[in-house]
Computed example of a mutant assay.
Amino acid sequence: MTAELPEHPVRITPLPPEQWTPALRALLAGSAKDGPGRVNLFGTLAHHPGLAQAWLSLARVLTHEGTLTGRQRELVVLRTAHRRGSSFVFDRHRAVAADAGLDSREVAATASPLAEHPWSAHDLALLEASDALAAGEPLPQPLWDRLAGGLRPDQLVELLILAGQCATMCATLGALHTPPDGGRTPSG
Rank of each mutant, 00 (worst) to 15 (best):
A3Q: 13
A3G: 03
E4W: 11
L5D: 14
L5P: 06
L5A: 15
H8D: 11
P9R: 15
P9C: 12
V10E: 12
R11D: 02
I12W: 11
L15E: 12
P17L: 08
E18I: 12
W20H: 12
P22G: 03
A23G: 14
A23S: 15
R25Y: 13
A26R: 11
L28G: 06
L28V: 11
A29D: 15
G30H: 00
G30L: 01
S31N: 13
A32M: 04
K33R: 14
K33N: 09
G37W: 01
G37Q: 03
L41W: 13
F42T: 00
L45G: 01
A46P: 11
H48R: 15
G50T: 07
G50K: 12
A54G: 15
L56Q: 05
S57N: 14
R60A: 03
V61P: 00
V61D: 07
H64S: 09
H64L: 10
T67H: 15
L68A: 07
T69C: 05
T69D: 06
G70T: 02
Q72M: 09
Q72N: 10
R73Y: 01
R73N: 03
E74V: 06
L75Q: 08
V76C: 02
V76S: 00
V76I: 14
V77Y: 00
L78F: 06
R79W: 05
T80K: 05
T80M: 08
A81E: 01
H82P: 00
G85F: 02
G85W: 00
S87H: 10
S87Q: 14
F88H: 04
V89M: 13
H93W: 00
R94Q: 14
V96G: 08
A97D: 02
A97C: 05
A98H: 10
D103L: 08
D103T: 09
S104D: 15
R105A: 14
E106L: 07
A109V: 13
A109D: 06
A109T: 06
S112W: 12
S112I: 07
P113T: 09
L114F: 03
A115L: 10
A115D: 15
A115I: 05
E116F: 03
H117C: 14
P118N: 08
S120L: 12
H122W: 09
D123F: 11
A125F: 14
L127H: 01
E128K: 12
A129T: 03
S130M: 02
D131L: 04
A132G: 04
A132H: 14
A132W: 10
L133C: 01
A135W: 03
G136E: 07
P138I: 04
L139R: 09
P140I: 03
Q141F: 08
P142H: 01
P142T: 04
P142A: 02
L143E: 06
L143F: 11
W144K: 13
W144D: 10
D145C: 03
A148N: 05
A148P: 04
A148V: 02
L151Q: 02
D154H: 11
D154A: 15
D154G: 10
L156E: 02
L156M: 07
E158C: 00
E158F: 02
L160M: 11
I161K: 00
L162A: 05
L162G: 01
C170R: 07
A171W: 04
L173E: 06
G174L: 14
A175F: 06
D181E: 14
D181K: 09
G182A: 10
G183C: 05
T185M: 03
T185G: 07
P186A: 15
P186Y: 07
P186I: 10
S187A: 15
